[in-house]
């Protein structure tokens, strides 16, 4: 069980307090009705599956309750960094 640094609580907490919430920085289009079918398909379904550095969302669901972003290495399962929702991609 890994430790994950919650950027809101500002401490490392055990993994079982967290839930993964999929790929990060997939923003909902501001005006979905203006999206072409292809654009909307990409937003809904197309996700990265990198070997190595991966931007993910996690939620400290059994803690402060906040969603945040993380960079995790999918090979080593090590977190490179975590940062608050809304902060620029790292």
């Amino acid at each position: 069980m890994i430790l994950i640094h919650c950027p809101y609580c500002d401490e490392k907490r055990p993994e079982i307090e967290f839930a993964n919430a999929g790929q990060a920085h997939v923003a909902r289009p501001l005006d979905p009705s203006s999206q072409s079918d292809e654009e909307w398909e990409a937003y809904l379904f197309i996700r990265a599956n990198p070997r190595g550095r991966h931007h993910e969302r996690w939620r400290h669901v059994h803690g402060c309750g906040r969603f945040f972003n993380a960079v995790r290495d999918t090979v080593t399962d090590k977190f490179e960094t975590t940062y608050k929702a809304g902060e620029p991609r790292r």
């Binding site: 609580c9 907490r13 079982i16 307090e17 059994h62 803690g63 402060c64 309750g65």
Partner: peptide
């Protein structure tokens, strides 16, 4: 002592 947190 005095600290509180949600956990599991």
């Amino acid at each position: 002592v005095g600290r509180a947190t949600r956990t599991i």
